[in-house]
Design a protein around this nucleic acid. Structure first.
Lengths: 118, 118
DNA sequence: AGTATGTTTAACCTAATAGTTAATTAACTG
DNA sequence: CAGTTAATTAACTATTAGGTTAAACATACT
């Protein structure tokens, strides 16, 4: 796996168990066993998933007696949201065909360029 | 890897080479060799990356002589954007402390519940 | 037909993921 | 101190990811 922040975040999100854990944490803090409860999966497996989320900065943990309460951290998700902005035009253009037209124009340019070279 | 659509999309995005390819395609269609050019990587490697993007629905390809022009498809990114909405409150709440307060309240509830059980 | 260009497939390697069970650590309880 | 609860670590397994080189395939050009 790549080690840049965005790659680590996307990789962490690429698992339904981990996304379900985040959804749970969106309701507030929770302990590891609480988070594990909905899954047909051993506790160590959940522990590993939490470590992945933690490495991605999506979860932080405190200590409280023998519990490690987990808490959602949204910062990496904000980064994903920001990364997405460069593509928003591609699904928001439907009501305004200009961007679409510009894209096709560029595609045409490319095609012509290639043919000249060949 | 999980096979649900969102997992496949996130997994596809979890690689800087593939994200760079998407960024390139945001400028318009491109052939495989054109896409490969910026990378110190063999053509088959790029071909594999494209297959991953294609499986995720982020790229479609047509045929034109011996070229397979690749085109960006934004639909899966739109899905990611939609998935993100359930977390937007967590980074947009800064100017309005109410959500924050509610979250802490919930965390407190959880804590109390646990202590009663134990 | 033969050659050049663009792309994919095959076969292989290495490292990382996602899971398991069993053992260990940590903290509280009686 | 002995026992219980919460969570992690260790050791192992199977699968997948991401890369390589060499060979094959597809189309166009002369």
């Amino acid at each position: 796996m790549s080690t840049d922040q965005l790659s680590v975040t996307f990789a962490a999100l690429a698992d339904p168990t981990r996304r379900a854990i985040l959804a749970h944490l969106a309701q507030g803090e929770a302990s590891v066993t609480e988070l594990a409860q909905p899954f047909a999966m051993s506790l160590p497996a959940i522990s590993k998933h939490l470590k992945v989320l933690e490495r991605a900065g999506l979860v932080t943990r405190s200590r409280e007696a023998q519990w490690r309460p987990c808490r959602l951290e949204a910062e990496p998700l904000k980064d994903v949201d920001h990364w997405l902005t460069q593509y928003r035009q591609f699904w928001e253009q439907s009501f305004d065909r200009l961007d679409d037209y510009l894209q096709e124009l560029q595609a045409e340019e490319k095609k012509k360029g290639r043919k000249h070279k060949t």
